[in-house]
């Protein structure tokens, strides 16, 4: 029994290292003192972090990403919550099919979606526009909101709305005072996932980007294909910590809503 446990432990450790290593390698590289992506780094400096915040190419792309992701998070949460509410109240079998259709953007290969979106955007001159980015990313983010809100609706007792009605609340008041506060944690975790989905998105973004509107992932990609600039590693490190925080917050909120 004992040797088996040791082997199992080592195997798990190996998998963990394999999963985390690529991310962790980025962190020391970001402190390199030379303009190279060599690992291990030869010295220590903050210069690439300084470059990220002072070089307008980088800071503009960060602002673009933040702007698009913020709008996407709000719009996707609104639409996704309505969809989840509708689906939870549909009694016939059509609900399952409709849910599957609404989730498809999550399972269809990104490049397929990207080609389709690009073709349509060329026609309607949406390439390189904030509206184009928001539209595409919202579509990608809605499934995450639907899943998160559906999870909190599953534990929501619809009979509470009946009780509210008996106490004098019309449907809208019952929704506002009872349903909404009880599914708010699910909506918040959906909002965070939607934000991260847009903020991280690269495939569609590469297709519909333009020199005038670059999001951060696009800027990283062009930078690393053009020259070995360690600023990429600095950005990677910042994004890694920022998204980890957001996702952790989302998971904590989500698990809290399931318990209540």
């Amino acid at each position: 029994m004992k040797p088996f446990r040791i082997i199992l432990g080592l195997f798990c450790l190996l998998v963990a290292v394999w999963l985390i290593m690529p991310t962790l390698v980025v962190i020391p590289m970001s402190f390199n003192d030379k303009k190279s992506l060599a690992f291990p780094p030869s010295g220590f400096s903050w210069q690439w972090y300084a470059n990220f915040f002072t070089n307008p190419e980088w800071s503009n792309s960060l602002l673009n990403s933040l702007k698009v992701a913020s709008i996407v998070a709000v719009v996707a949460t609104f639409i996704g919550t309505l969809a989840a509410l509708g689906l939870s109240r549909m009694k016939h079998s059509g609900a399952g099919i409709l849910r599957a259709i609404l989730i498809t953007p999550m399972v269809v290969p990104g490049v397929v979606l990207a080609i389709g979106i690009y073709a349509v955007y060329l026609n309607y001159q949406l390439v390189g526009t904030t509206f184009g980015f928001v539209l595409a990313h919202t579509m990608l983010a809605i499934p995450f909101v639907i899943i998160a809100v559906s999870a909190s609706l599953e534990v929501f007792d619809v009979r509470l709305e009946t009780a509210a009605a008996s106490l004098g609340a019309n449907r809208f008041t019952a929704f506002r005072t009872i349903t909404l506060p009880l599914i708010a944690p699910g909506m918040l975790s959906g909002l965070l996932f939607a934000f991260v989905t847009s903020f991280d998105e690269i495939i569609v973004a590469l297709f519909i980007t333009s020199p005038y509107l670059k999001t951060l992932p696009v800027q990283i990609f062009t930078s690393i294909t053009r020259d070995a600039d360690p600023t990429v590693a600095a950005v990677g490190t910042i994004i890694f910590f920022a998204t980890s925080l957001v996702i952790a917050a989302g998971l904590i909120i989500g698990s809290k809503s399931k318990r209540s």
């Binding site: 009979r159 009605a165 009880l182």
Partner: peptide, 30 residues
């Protein structure tokens, strides 16, 4: 006449208390 306009008290088998409100808020709701 819709339920919310009937002014009839209802007690349910499953209690149906609002979990996000205190006892006092629940009773104050109507």
């Amino acid at each position: 006449v819709p339920a919310h306009k009937r002014n009839i008290g209802v007690v349910f088998q499953h209690y149906a208390l609002f979990p996000h409100m205190t006892v006092g808020k629940n009773v104050a709701y109507p």
